[in-house]
Design a protein around this nucleic acid. Structure first.
Length: 668
DNA sequence: AAATGTTTATTAAGAT
DNA sequence: ATCTTAATAAACATTT
């Protein structure tokens, strides 16, 4: 063997000479080079950050464990805790073959639906998801919940070390998933999880892990989201639906996804949720409709996407969901406005559910990865970028986050809240925006006319086109502009979500436009209150569901981090909002958030500013790593145009565990 | 009819 | 005890 090499080593070859000089043989060279190659291959991915990873995981784990899982979550299927868990792996395969599978699934879905209906009638049976209606089966739900709780198991990420590095995986899973029941270490992977199939590791962990595994299919085929590599435990994740949605949406570059894609993402990453099961999907829709953080973006005529604005990113930090961090939610609540979307305006003719006509309009600033937006503005990037997602490579989506700052700074952009000022002319939003010209952000709903505009209810629909511009690219200007505006501007841009927060009482102002008379027949059943002051639902309703959207400030101060305690799963706490942050994995904490001067300036108040936040540490080895990765990487690591961090620079990709926060909270 | 959205309600669990 | 949150169920609306 070596011989051949030797020969080649001819002295005259420069390389040969060099080797000689180094005292190496050709063989050595080869060996090293292959090692290197290997290293790069695997490392490029996540693995490269072993330390971090580790740290992360650890952190994550610990943190998590400390944090109790939210129990309630269980409901849905788990019912008995037992049973069904093992989900069939069908998804596993699905992971790789999206389309095809999808079709199949879809079909099944339909059937399932029917089945379900039937089931419902009968009640007892339900194959997949056990949760029968509450009322119906006493034992059903309640039991289920409790049971599930009992059975909870915890999943320890570590165990699954299987995962090679991928810190991504490692951290990923753990962080986000909290299993109630102790997970058996033996096999890290849940049965259903894609077996080895999912090549956890190396398979180029990279981005493409996404859905379509293999060859990147056509563009068409390509999914707009990114799914993390790794085994996907079949267990029910201890995350709220909002958190799941957030993860899904944020995995997309532009932070917006269609309902279908949301379903897909969730079912792929969390096999527990099967496409055949209508229950959770219904819940997803419900959450989307009721939670203000999820904004509907109108794309074209009919299609619509669900988006998360940058300003709301904090809510999803860590892959969880903390409504307390959502300004709008809080505002809403305070206002007493319960629902996200229209709630009937007061006396008006509430009426039917509108929808028909109204053209949405507004837009939100969207960031387009391709754009340089952030790039352009160093100041802006900060924090989120930092946040970024450690595993950037894998999650371009997160890069998107980078824009966060931007938007952040521009709060006004949307939210009504900000718009407080927006006065009376509510309508003006549009115009104003229009004035702004390009700025996409406008208000939603019909502007002029009608709309109802109630501030309260406006639904915000954003016009994608507007956002992107015809070509789909978002106008950087917009973003920047907003920043600038931040200072104060007339907030014009607004999406509207709902109105002004407080003061303005637009109602009066608003053109209330009586929308269309109710043409629709009231619902039979309860005859809801259409006309009624319904609004109310609010009143009572408030609680009911509405609350969901709203949030109580109250405890804010108590951000407790749960910690602790026992490991036992017991009471999970929703409160803990476990969702709050699972550490690591998702958007990692901003590592460097603010510290950047620019940033702070801009955002003076970013929510994150909290002191504790992590600071950027130049000395942090991670930073160095980051550099390296960056260097090396943009290319393979990530196909996204944006590049890992979008060239953004500077930011750490992964969070440093240590830095931020202690423990539990992780980032901030 | 199906997919997608909205809205109401109910219930359980956790927080105060 | 009461309030809040999240999950779930289901009716209804709209569009395709």
């Amino acid at each position: 063997m070596g011989q051949g090499d030797e020969r080649r080593n001819a002295p005259d070859s420069p390389i040969g000479q060099l080797l000689k000089h180094l005292g190496m043989t050709r063989e050595d060279l080869q060996r090293h080079s292959s090692q290197m190659r290997e290293f790069l291959t695997t490392e490029s991915t996540p693995s490269s950050l072993p330390e971090d990873r580790t740290g992360f995981s650890k952190l994550g784990v610990d943190g998590q464990s400390s944090r109790k899982p939210r129990s309630r979550a269980s409901s849905h299927g788990n019912a008995s805790g037992i049973p069904q868990t093992p989900v069939k792996p069908r998804h596993s395969s699905g992971l790789h073959k999206p389309d095809t599978m999808e079709a199949t699934i879809e079909r099944q879905n339909k059937l399932a639906r029917k089945e379900k209906r039937g089931r419902r009638d009968s009640n007892a049976m339900g194959p997949p998801s056990p949760t029968p209606g509450p009322a119906t089966l006493p034992s059903g739900p309640s039991t289920s919940t409790s049971t599930s709780r009992d059975s909870k198991r915890e999943y320890s990420p570590q165990e699954s070390e299987t995962q090679p590095l991928v810190y991504f995986q490692g951290s990923y899973q753990p962080s986000r998933l909290k299993y109630k029941t102790p997970y058996h270490s033996t096999s890290p992977l849940p049965p259903s999880s894609p077996p080895p199939s999912t090549p956890p590791r190396c398979s180029s962990p990279i981005v493409n892990v996404v859905s379509s595994p293999g060859p990147p299919s056509n563009d068409d085929d390509e999914v707009p989201y990114v799914i993390p590599p790794g085994p996907y435990p079949a267990e029910k994740p201890d995350l709220s639906y909002a958190a799941l949605i957030g993860q899904a949406v944020l995995s997309s570059k532009e932070h917006r996804l269609s309902l279908q894609h949301i379903y897909e993402w969730i079912s792929k990453v969390y096999p527990y949720y099967k496409r055949t099961d209508q229950i959770w999907m219904n819940s997803i829709r419900h959450v989307l409709s009721t939670s203000i953080v999820f904004r509907k973006v109108q794309r074209g005529q009919n299609k619509s996407l669900w988006a998360i604005l940058d300003k709301d990113l904090p809510c999803f930090e860590g892959g969880g969901f903390d409504r307390r961090l959502c300004e709008d939610m809080n505002n809403a609540k305070s206002k007493a406005r319960p629902r996200k979307r229209r709630a009937e305006t007061t006396s008006e003719p509430p009426v039917k559910r509108f929808k028909s006509e109204r053209p949405p309009v507004a837009s939100v600033p969207c960031y387009h990865p391709h754009t340089a937006s952030m790039l352009a503005n160093p100041h802006l990037q900060p924090y989120y970028s930092a946040y970024g997602y450690p595993y950037a490579y894998a999650n371009p989506a997160y890069f998107a986050t980078m824009r966060a700052p931007v938007s952040y700074s521009q709060p006004q952009v949307q939210t009504a809240a900000t718009s407080s000022q927006s006065p009376p002319q509510a309508v003006p939003d549009l115009s104003s925006s229009a004035g702004f010209s390009s700025s996409p952000v406008t208000s939603l709903r019909e502007p002029t006319s009608s709309q109802n505009t109630d501030p309260d209810d406006a639904v915000e629909i954003i016009d994608e086109q507007a956002m992107l511009g015809s070509d789909g690219i978002e106008p950087l200007a917009t973003l920047l502009r907003s920043d600038v505006l931040e200072s104060d501007p007339p907030h014009k841009l607004s999406i509207k979500e709902n109105g002004p927060p407080s003061e303005p009482s637009p109602k009066s102002l608003k053109p209330s436009q009586p929308p269309v008379p109710p043409s629709t027949p009231p619902r039979k059943t309860s005859s809801r209150k259409l006309g009624s002051p319904a609004s109310p639902a609010t009143s009572r309703g408030l609680r009911a569901s509405p609350s969901t959207y709203l949030n109580p400030p109250a405890s804010s101060s108590t951000i407790t981090i749960p910690l602790a305690s026992s490991d036992a799963p017991k009471t999970p706490s929703r409160s803990s909002r476990s969702n709050l942050l699972p550490p690591q994995y998702f958007p990692p904490p901003p590592v460097t958030p603010n510290k950047r001067p620019g940033f702070s300036i801009l955002t003076g108040d970013s929510p994150f500013n909290s002191p504790s936040k992590s600071v950027f540490d130049p000395h942090d080895p991670r930073a160095v790593l980051d550099e390296e990765l960056r260097r090396f990487g943009e290319r393979d690591l990530y196909s996204s145009p944006v590049g890992l961090f979008g060239k953004n620079k500077g930011v750490l990709l992964y969070q440093s565990p240590g830095v931020p926060s202690p423990g539990a909270t992780g980032w901030w």
